[in-house]
Measured scan of single mutants.
Amino acid sequence: DENEERIRAFALYKGIDPEKARELWERGEINKDDEEKAWREYK
């Protein structure tokens, strides 16, 4: 689903483990601007 892809995109963008990215996502600790930037680059 799209959230999974967004988490993966963010992990790649930040160079972090996707599981770590998922934890940040679930806790609401992902910066929305960074997340959008990562998503645009990923697509």
Rank of each mutant, 00 (worst) to 15 (best):
K20N: 07
L24Y: 05
L12H: 14
E36M: 06
R27L: 11
R22Q: 05
I7N: 01
K32T: 09
R6L: 11
P18H: 13
R40W: 10
E4T: 08
E26Y: 13
I7R: 01
P18Q: 12
K20P: 01
P18G: 05
E26S: 09
D33A: 11
K14C: 15
K14Q: 08
K43A: 09
L12V: 12
K14E: 06
I30W: 10
R22L: 07
A38E: 02
K14T: 12
E5Q: 10
L12P: 01
E2W: 13
E36G: 03
R8G: 02
D1S: 12
I30Q: 01
R8T: 08
E19D: 13
N31W: 06
D17F: 03
L24M: 15
D1V: 12
R22K: 11
R40N: 13
W25C: 07
N3M: 15
I7F: 05
E4Y: 09
K14S: 11
E35Q: 12
K32S: 09
R22D: 00
P18S: 07
G15V: 01
F10H: 04
K32Q: 10
Y13L: 06
D17K: 09
D1Q: 13
Y13W: 14
E23G: 06
E19K: 12
E29D: 09
K32W: 14
D17T: 15
N31P: 12
W25V: 04
E35A: 15
L12I: 13
G28C: 11
I16N: 00
A21Y: 01
K37E: 12
E41K: 11
L24W: 05
Y13Q: 04
E35S: 11
W25S: 02
A9G: 01
K14A: 14
Y42P: 03
D34P: 01
K37N: 12
K43Y: 09
D34I: 06
W39A: 03
N31V: 05
W39F: 06
E26F: 11
N3H: 13
E26P: 00
E19P: 03
D33R: 06
R8I: 14
E2M: 13
E36I: 07
E23V: 10
W25K: 03
E41D: 10
G15N: 10
E23S: 08
E19Q: 12
E41F: 11
R8Y: 14
E5H: 09
I30E: 01
Y42M: 05
E41V: 08
K32F: 10
A38Q: 03
G15P: 00
R6F: 14
D17H: 11
D17I: 05
K43T: 13
